[in-house]
């Protein structure tokens, strides 16, 4: 795709770091938070709110996840993965839509250059 784009490269570095680098939460848990999938309560509620309605996150949501046995450092990592995951889905969907629009544009430009 846009491998030459410095912004894309820097973005990929963020995603790769939080998902694949060392962390206090297991890689599988970070991946699940990123994808907002395969999570059990009470973590599921917190992560889904971070992804879809972050202004609705409450002290109680965070307290419930702590009470379930996760450390603050693990919550820090999982919330970050959830935020980046949602932003990434939107970013990728938009880049695909742009690529599709560009393909049509090129096709119609070629058609007008070479009317057959």
């Amino acid at each position: 795709m846009l491998t030459e784009d410095k912004k894309r490269t820097a973005y990929t570095a963020v995603v790769t770091r939080v998902l694949e680098g060392d962390g206090r939460a297991a890689r599988a848990a970070r991946r699940a938070a990123f994808e907002n999938a395969r999570l059990a309560e009470p973590l599921r509620t917190l992560i889904d709110k971070v992804a879809k309605q972050p202004t609705r996150v409450t002290n109680e949501d965070v307290a419930a996840v702590k009470a379930s046995g996760l450390s603050e450092d693990q919550i820090f990592e999982l919330v970050i993965c959830a935020a980046i995951g949602q932003a990434t889905r939107q970013y990728e969907t938009a880049l695909e839509a742009l690529a599709a629009a560009m393909t049509d544009k090129k096709r119609s430009e070629h058609a007008s250059e070479d009317p057959q």
């Binding site: 912004k7 894309r8 973005y11 917190l46 709110k49 971070v50 992804a51 972050p54 202004t55 996150v57 919330v79 970050i80 959830a82 935020a83 980046i84 949602q86 932003a87 990434t88 939107q90 970013y91 938009a94 880049l95 742009l98």
Partner: peptide, 16 residues
């Protein structure tokens, strides 16, 4: 889109 992605992340973290 890069700006949008940065703030879709940061906004979520600010509120969470």
């Amino acid at each position: 889109l890069a700006v949008c992605s940065a703030f879709n992340t940061t906004d979520r973290l600010a509120d969470a």
